Amino acid sequence: MKKQWLKKRILIWIRAMISWSCLALILLFLILLKPELTESILYTVIAWSMLFSFFLMLAIGKVMILEPLRTIRKKIELFNDGIIFTEIFKNLEGISPDTDALLLKVHTILDKDKIMENAKQQARYLALQNQINPHFLYNVLESIRSDAIMAGVPEIGKITEALAVFFRYTTSKMESLSTLQEELNNVENYFLIQKYRFDDKLELKIKLPRNDEEILKTRIPKLTLQPIVENAIKHGLEPKVSGGTIVIDIEHSETVLYLSVVDDGIGIEETRLGCLNEKLSRMDANDTSANEGGKGGIALINVNSRIRLLMGDEYGIHILSTPRIGTEVCLTLPYMFEQTEGIG
């Protein structure tokens, strides 16, 4: 579909207003020459049509020009305040072809370390903005767990404990990397909560290489697996009603770690799949169009961007899917054990 540049919309709107003004002047000139025209039905129709078209053009200008300009202004203010960083490139797109080319070039040459630092600052800002006292939350969950066990409902106690552990992992530490073991433990806790929600209709399988416990010590970006599993449940298995299975398959070479999250859900249509993979091929965590129609994508793009920012552009996510059969999310990461960031 041809892109509707904001610059072009402004020019078209200005030309339309100029044309309307010329017609209005002509009509006024005719009335001054022949005042009897005001008594004709044709004049009344033309006058009302001119009035209606004027307000219509004002409404079009507000929606197509004024609102986008207000959005751009707000995003620039947030950027100047240090609240957003990489989002500015997406929100300023569409002004003109020259502007888009400039933004693409600036985004490409920006230092990755600077991007990461600003992304961390944004994360800290959002964490403060939405902060919940974690100790209070843990204490409340522990009280619920104890009461559930004393009341003879151990299942509630088990789920509450899993929820507390999940929140503790999610909110604790600001490090960018965790061990694969910690990530898998977090997924298992999250999955335990989801199984309770779906009446045990879900099943999780984790496949590790035989006699290779060392792989569990490899370091990957924190919260890599859980968002992908959540996405598989929400957009793959939940629509099936009958539930399903998620398999996390783990392999590695001497230098590369291969992770795949496979579900036997409803799958993704070919057009949608191509669109998602195209977005994943770009390093863009802020493309909200990925979630049009409520079909998911934002979580995958977010994880993919964090992987590429931390590890390099040669790593990331690719999706394979067949409608009504299932989906496989394939991740490639460096096979490493030390706390190293920005190795790419």
Rank of each mutant, 00 (worst) to 15 (best):
F55V: 14
I298P: 04
I193F: 07
W13T: 13
I159V: 15
L309M: 10
E270F: 11
I266L: 10
L66W: 03
S146A: 02
L216C: 06
I132H: 12
I109N: 08
K173S: 15
R168Q: 05
G342A: 12
Q131P: 02
S176P: 03
D287P: 05
L141P: 05
Y258W: 12
L333N: 03
E36I: 01
G243V: 00
I159T: 15
E67D: 00
L180W: 04
G243I: 02
L33T: 11
A164K: 07
D100C: 11
N304P: 00
I307Y: 11
K195M: 14
K8L: 09
S305Y: 04
S21V: 06
T170S: 13
F79C: 05
M64W: 06
D287G: 08
I76H: 01
K240G: 09
K158F: 05
R168A: 10
L276Q: 06
I132V: 02
D212C: 09
V262T: 12
F29G: 15
L58W: 12
D113A: 11
I159H: 08
P239W: 13
L37N: 13
T288I: 10
E117G: 00
W48Y: 08
E77Q: 07
E269S: 12
Y125M: 09
E183H: 06
G152T: 05
I307F: 08
A232K: 03
Y315I: 14
A290C: 15
P35F: 08
N189H: 12
I159D: 10
I250F: 01
L310E: 10
N80Y: 00
